[in-house]
Write a protein that binds this DNA or RNA. Sequence first.
DNA 1: ATTGAAGTATTGTTCAACAATCCAACGACG
DNA 2: CGTCGTTGGATTGTTGAACAATACTTCAAT
Lengths: 235, 235
Amino acid sequence: MTATDAHTDRTPGRRRPLPPLPTQAERVAELLRESLIDGAYPPRQRLSEERLCEELGVSRNTLREAFRLLVRERLLVHQMHRGVFVAHPTSEDVRDLFRTRRVLELPALRGAVRPGEEAVRAVGSAVDEGEAARDRERWKEMGTANMRFHQALAGLAGSARVNEFMSQVLAETRLVFHVMDAPREFHAPYLDWNRRIHTLLAAGDVTGAADELAAYLDTSEHQLVTAFTARERDA
Amino acid sequence: MTATDAHTDRTPGRRRPLPPLPTQAERVAELLRESLIDGAYPPRQRLSEERLCEELGVSRNTLREAFRLLVRERLLVHQMHRGVFVAHPTSEDVRDLFRTRRVLELPALRGAVRPGEEAVRAVGSAVDEGEAARDRERWKEMGTANMRFHQALAGLAGSARVNEFMSQVLAETRLVFHVMDAPREFHAPYLDWNRRIHTLLAAGDVTGAADELAAYLDTSEHQLVTAFTARERDA
DNA sequence: ATTGAAGTATTGTTCAACAATCCAACGACG
DNA sequence: CGTCGTTGGATTGTTGAACAATACTTCAAT
């Protein structure tokens, strides 16, 4: 296994004791989640139960179970007797997302005591992926790799629950990026920063890496909030 | 409003713009969640759909929506074609919960720049509550107050998402405590620690407070993991 | 004691129905 | 002209029953 092919969390060699067959609702939720973070549905759009359950080939009840999960994840919003809508994050949401990411990413980075660990290599491969995507001008993949980079940073905490929470936070963050569709402008400038953070981390300078990451988050938040408040003035 | 009556998050003076009427499934989930963190159901117990939906006066479909939510929160576990069971945390879960709590609580405390804030007073009233409950020998309330103390610590981060995540983590932690039913032994020794942390925090010594909290978490985790591994040897 | 084959009980999912509510169209009225 | 009820249609909220799929139990045979 080389350092660059860690783009899958599965360990194909050994099966888990109980391959938990997902129920129908969970599969639907997974599919909708992917569609949402891919930007398949525009923000604020209502998702009709009738149409979607027809489209997905499941019953209304099953679809509603999936809806409930995605609402809890803040990817959808629910209004009584009106239905579910694609979430439309505000600038306050952006601020809260970055507050959360500071909590999740910075201490994980500072606590990364052993630079040679598997988790650190995951950070490195995400950086590699991002640069490769940039060189090939695959902007969407570049955004994905950037998200994986930050997921890997949170992964340094070594906690399943933190990882899961971080996944949700990043999914919501992708929704934010889709509100203003320009992955190139919002991701490309940060790839060099990612590289620098990983270099410091791999060298064992977690404090320096954390300082870089803090500056990164400040800059990124400022850029996004600025763009958002401008957009909110219009709408 | 005195410092000791902040045991409610509601601000009864002003109504929220839209009091979001909870749907039936969410109400059922809320009720079951309360029952679970109160220890109404023993761990590993299966929750029969037929019996519960009869008991709660809702349909199976509605109950299943609530189940799905609580499974996502790790309070219930789901096994295909076998039903849902009350979660039975392992010692590894305990370790992960404490890893998570370190991530959530320590940076929030270190980042508490303004000691006079509302959020800091919330920490103080949780401490007061805990001591009052101890003096009255209300052990269950004492555990509740202790949880509220840590919730308030995480609240110092000022993030709605972090607060929500912390709520889940603490709910799961209460499940852990219920596995070994002895709130007095597990909570009482830490009340003095809580007081000390708040005193340091209110004095603006966030570093000192964080050091105390770190020691607190180490001790508490060690105590719980020890008790758990002993229990796991039997079962 | 172990194995294998019914039979039973419970969950997984769908469907159809009804009540509750929102929304758009329409008309009355100042 | 614009505002305010009313009305009718459309969509969601929730239920109950039905059937399929699977796990558990029982029991007989080896």
